[in-house]
Write a protein that binds this DNA or RNA. Structure first.
Lengths: 265, 265
DNA sequence: CTAGCTTGTTCCATTATGTGGAACTTGGTT
DNA sequence: AACCAAGTTCCACATAATGGAACAAGCTAG
């Protein structure tokens, strides 16, 4: 019934699983443990239904219900995520290139892939720091204001871009964030031309980076790598100097992907 | 119908979600991308059913179906797990203690928690190494042959222990792995008495460690920390010398947990 | 201490959803 | 062309999710 909007219906047809995942995500991405009622308010689901869903999620180890009756992320997710991360082909294949890039530049190097309008960081190499190490792996950032993100977006078709950013607004994070649709398109065209993307404090103040896209020949997969550093250390000249290094590394990785996918005979 | 065994039925009553998670885990913990038929063989589920489940998992971003029709872990899990890891209270609270322990010993320090009969590593601090950093976070190891695992087990009631290891065999990994039930119980009693656990190459040859348990006063939660090093560098004397350091750190963390949970007034 | 609230939990008739045997494609092999 | 294996779709059927409503448990106020 009601086939309705053919217009890119975002709501997936994943039945029970989809609803459970929505609840899981709600809790996992919250910034603190949530009470039943808080979840109820945000989940838009009848009490009894939500109650059972939460019960199932807890029983599966995806959530935990602590002594204060607050729901928290469970450990099962960590296990699953870790296992899949460990065998990510892209990550393994890119690792030496990241390392090399780090040694050349001395700054932090990231590997990220595009998922919807977000970049998910898969790996990073950084100098010994006080900052916790894995802190960035699995983290997501908006694509339109990060180096890796813009590099990845630059390879998408106009149509796919339109789908991603169709109705939504481009959030601004700093004074330099690109928030106008047409400005972003111009930026992407430029990036496509020169082969690398800059992030000049567009996501976080005081942080600059150079990035280049990774893709297989059909541009089915899109991700990218970047070198990031604090603005006081990374001036415009430095960004420009690093650009070719990043481009080369990205190209090398893209090539290896192509080889792995096999030269169809 | 058939309420059957009341005897600790492991099969959860999580309906559709449980089945989906079983399939997800099957794929995520495999050591390579799997074809539909391979999954079919291992999942013990009718074709059509499995096909729809996989479809849903893919649509939800929990799995990905690559060009060779192989199913691989998706990125959604990584995102969720990363977000929850970042805000894990235990991890944040323990971090400075891990760091301190690392500085005292110069070796790798782990934080892990018990889940069923497994230890899941939540964090680690290690020297700068060639080995990739996050490689261990989220990883699981059997509890009966790791330092953290045995320390955690030592705090469980006999009844809970029995439930965990009831029917299953204790897998052996090296010549020194404890595989006899009664030997394990004796070891746990000893650990309970002295307050720390050793792993003398019981899980991996050439790797030794000292661990101590972390728990809240009701022993509801159980985890542990450990210092690990290669056998050639870590002799029996070193293990003994580190034991008090590890015990103290674990005690300090346990205390902080107790404080956080609040001195109920 | 009771009345009145809010928050969490359980019940159960209703029906939407997932189930799975079987039939149907698709692509490769002899 | 005939065959086989791998993947995909169909649809009558029954299981499993749904959600309104009643129930318990904790608080706070009168």
């Amino acid at each position: 019934m009601a086939e309705g909007d053919e217009t890119e219906v975002r709501a997936a047809n994943t039945g029970t699983l989809g609803k459970a995942m929505a609840v899981l995500e709600l809790v996992a991405l919250a910034d603190r443990p949530l009470r039943f009622t808080e979840i109820l308010a945000r989940a838009g689901q009848p009490r009894a239904t939500l109650h059972r869903q939460l019960g199932h999620l807890v029983e599966e180890g995806l959530l935990e219900l602590n002594a204060d009756l607050c729901y928290e992320p469970g450990l099962r997710m960590l296990k699953l995520a870790s296992a899949s991360w460990a065998r990510s082909d892209l990550r393994r294949l890119a690792a030496p290139h990241l390392q090399a890039l780090h040694e050349l530049t001395g700054e932090t190097v990231h590997l990220g892939v595009l998922r919807d309008a977000e970049i998910i960081y898969l790996d990073k190499v950084e100098s010994r720091q006080a900052v916790r190490m894995a802190s960035q792996v699995g983290k997501t950032s908006p694509a339109h204001c990060t180096g890796v993100g813009k590099a990845a977006l630059s390879l998408l078709s106009a149509e796919r871009l339109h789908r991603l950013f169709g109705g939504v607004e481009l959030l601004g994070f700093t004074p330099t964030t690109i928030t106008a649709r047409d400005a972003l398109e111009a930026e992407l065209a430029l990036i496509r031309e020169v082969g690398h993307a800059f992030d000049r404090e567009e996501h976080e103040a005081g942080i600059r980076c150079v990035a280049a896209a990774i893709s297989d020949q059909q541009k089915t997969f899109v991700g990218g790598i970047s070198v990031t550093g604090p603005a006081y250390r990374v001036g415009e000249d430095v960004l420009q100097a690093w650009a070719p290094l990043v481009r080369n590394a990205a190209a090398a990785i893209s090539e290896e992907i192509a080889v792995r996918l096999g030269p169809r005979p």
